[in-house]
Design a protein around this nucleic acid. Sequence first.
DNA 1: GCGACAG
DNA 2: ATCTTGTCGC
Length: 228
Amino acid sequence: MTGSPRTEAEALAIQDALRPQVIDAPGPSDPATVAGLDVAYHEDGERLAAAIVVLDARTHAVLDSAVVHGRPAFPYVPGLFAFREVPTLLEALDRLRVRPEVLICDGHGLAHPRRFGLACHLGVLTGLPSFGVGKTPLVGAWEPVGERRGARSELVDGGEVVGAVLRTRDAVKPVFVSVGHRINLGTACGLTLALTPRFRLPETTRAADRACRDALAGGPRGVTVPRR
DNA sequence: GCGACAG
DNA sequence: ATCTTGTCGC
């Protein structure tokens, strides 16, 4: 009942079954390792590459990584997005040698129409603390966010706080942070800020994004840059 | 009915 | 997601 769905109705049933398993806990505010997860799609829409990169939480040095090629497991439907990428991401997670303490996903967690976005899904399936950092909103409304890095505003949907709109760089478009599993919003925002010393997106997300894009392109070859 | 809609 | 460098505005 929790495998890959064939229809939207099955997907909704799986979300309903897994949602009660989300655990509300403080989470590790000072983890030793953090992992970034991301997926890149081939233009043919038939192939994808999923990457997970584990970083030292303090130095941001790469400790481990895994990239797996696969196929989208479900069509793209807002709200059911996780079903596309979860199977391949879980495979990549199995290949890691270093078990990360926190998963940082490219997408939302509770900031989802049924409170079960990708970050919740991966958290419940792996049992690991997780949260999501999205570049654009899926649900919710918020008050204008202060222009300085660190400023945040509550992301509210259906009368409840489902996440935070967080400014990670001065005067740069904010990101959308939401809890996935076994971590709270304050901890998630703190980790997000610790991972954005220079860019809008967390170093974890950037590292995973690079890894899966490189893999799709055929992998880095030597030190030379592709020529005309 | 019309738009919005993570990646 | 992906197509994509320089350009417009403050």
